[in-house]
């Protein structure tokens, strides 16, 4: 009688379906495909069959063997895979991605430039080695005037005795340079590096960054300055802020102010950062002095404008809670890789 190859194959397939682990799989494999397995025995017994049946059964049995082998192989792979997955320690650290970092001052400047650009201010720049006229005289800070003492200056070594060169003490000379070549109305900000001849400590450096702002038109007022600067702080610190102006003196503005912002750390209750006052000193500002307009060839009779200058290092220190200004220039990875 011819063996029931198809019934044998069906049984084997049924049993394989019930297999849940590698050990059971091996048992089923041995039962049907092992050296003494049922299918193996069928194949061996083919010679005993009558010739007319032999080729048909042989074909069927060989096909069944190949199919079952493939099936067990697939099952084996799946079972092995599940074993490996179960054994993976997913709490081990992921592969560390090597990345670079932008300096906090770059990040801050981008943010600040973005806010002012949104309010219609162009970003302009100027030289860091300036001449005395642009840095002082044109800004109504004459030589032999005590107001010059407000800026401790690095002078360049040179033979010139008139209109000598210096490292700009503020970004304000760029106001002059810009107005010399542009007509009002105008709105510009000037970010850049400035220099002061003074010893460095946790709050001051001899080089640091300033952001100058200038808006000139027919009706630009103190109220407009307050509006623009409040909007700026609101967007930068992403919260409602109050702004306070106090009388001050800068030779290139009249009136002149110190600008304070409500302390966001303590909600104006008074804390260490604001010296218990509820206010933080943020910048100097004022309405452009008529003599500055005259210096650039504008007619002050028909123009009004505001100008301001803020220290970006200090702003970065507030924004990122940095406690020492010198860290910004330290080149220390421990500091830089936090940004």
């Amino acid at each position: 009688m011819a063996p029931d190859v198809s019934g044998l194959k069906k049984r084997a397939e049924e049993e394989l379906k019930g297999v849940g682990n590698l050990k059971d799989l091996d048992e089923v494999f041995r039962k049907y495909l092992g050296r003494k397995g049922e299918l193996t025995l069928v194949l061996r017994s083919l010679v005993q069959l009558p010739v007319e049946q032999r080729s048909l059964v042989s074909k069927e049995a060989n096909a069944a063997r190949d199919e079952l082998r493939q099936l067990t192989e697939e099952l084996r792979k799946a079972l092995e895979g599940s074993v490996r997955q179960g054994g993976l320690d997913v709490t081990a650290p992921g592969v560390r991605i090597v990345r670079g970092h932008l300096h906090p001052l770059t990040r801050l400047q981008r943010e600040v430039n973005g806010i002012f650009s949104g309010m219609g201010f162009s970003v302009v720049e100027g030289p860091e080695i300036e001449d005395e006229w642009h840095n002082f005289d044109a800004l109504n800070i004459p030589a032999n005037h005590p107001s010059r003492d407000m800026w401790d200056t690095f002078w360049m070594k040179e033979k010139l005795t008139k209109n000598r060169h210096l490292l700009r003490t503020h970004t304000s000379p760029v106001q002059i340079r810009y107005m010399e070549h542009h007509e009002p109305p105008l709105r510009v900000i000037v970010p850049g590096r400035v220099f002061r001849y003074e010893a460095t400590d946790a709050r001051h450096g001899f080089n640091f960054y300033q952001l100058e702002g200038l808006m000139v038109g027919k009706q630009v007022s103190v109220a407009n300055f307050k509006g623009v600067i409040m909007e700026f702080y609101k967007r930068l610190f992403r919260s409602e802020v109050k702004v306070r102006l106090r009388p001050s003196y800068f030779p290139f503005t009249e009136p002149s102010f110190e600008v304070d912002m409500s302390c966001l750390l303590c909600g104006q209750k008074g804390c260490g950062s604001c010296g218990q006052s509820g206010w933080l000193e943020m910048m100097g500002a004022g309405m452009v002095h008529p003599k500055v307009f005259e210096a650039v060839g504008y007619n002050p009779k028909f123009l009004q404008g505001f100008a301001f200058g803020m220290g970006l290092d200090r702003l970065a220190m507030m924004r990122y809670k940095i406690n020492d200004a010198r860290l910004l220039y330290s080149g220390s990875l421990k500091f830089l890789e936090q940004f």
Partner: peptide, 22 residues
């Protein structure tokens, strides 16, 4: 100065020039 109320400028807006170098 506390009696001066903040007011955004009403001057007409000229779109800012891009600073290509920067």
């Amino acid at each position: 100065y506390e009696n001066i109320f903040p007011q955004l400028p009403t001057e007409y807006l000229i779109p800012p020039e891009p600073n290509e170098r920067l």
